[in-house]
Simulated scan of single mutants.
Amino acid sequence: MTTRPIQAINQNNWPEVLRIQAEVYSEIEPESLEVLQSKWQQSPSCCFVYHAETELAEQSRPEEQNVLGYLLAHAWHSETPPKLYQILPEESHGATLFLHDLAISKHAAGRGVGSNMVTHLLDSAASSGFEKALLVSVQDSVSFWQKHGFVELTNQQANESYGEDARVMMRSI
Rank of each mutant, 00 (worst) to 15 (best):
A125W: 10
E23Q: 12
V142A: 01
Y85C: 12
S161H: 13
G110C: 13
H77F: 09
V142P: 00
S115L: 11
A133D: 06
G149P: 05
V168R: 07
S32W: 03
S127Y: 08
C47F: 08
E64W: 09
D123T: 15
Q139V: 04
G129H: 13
Y162N: 03
I9R: 07
N159M: 12
E164N: 15
E63R: 11
L18F: 12
L72M: 02
V118S: 09
P30G: 15
S115N: 08
I20A: 10
V118Y: 02
G69I: 13
L153P: 03
E90K: 05
G114L: 13
D101G: 05
F98N: 10
L121W: 06
T154Y: 07
Q146E: 13
A133C: 05
Q7A: 13
R19Y: 13
V113E: 06
G129A: 15
A8H: 15
R61K: 12
T3M: 14
S172Q: 09
Y25A: 06
L99Y: 14
K106D: 04
Q21S: 14
M170V: 14
M170K: 11
G110K: 15
V136A: 07
H107S: 07
T80H: 08
G114I: 15
D165F: 08
K132C: 07
L84T: 07
P81H: 08
G110N: 12
S127D: 12
V49I: 09
K147P: 00
C47H: 02
E29K: 01
Q146D: 05
Y50F: 14
E55G: 00
F144W: 04
I9K: 13
E34G: 04
Y25P: 04
Q59F: 10
V24Y: 10
E79N: 08
N155A: 00
K132P: 01
E16I: 06
V168K: 10
G69N: 11
L99W: 14
W76T: 03
T119M: 10
K147S: 02
V142D: 04
V67T: 08
R111H: 14
H77E: 02
Y162K: 02
L99H: 12
P82R: 04
E23K: 01
D101M: 11
P62N: 06
S26P: 00
A95Y: 11
L88Y: 01
E16N: 04
M169L: 03
S26Y: 11
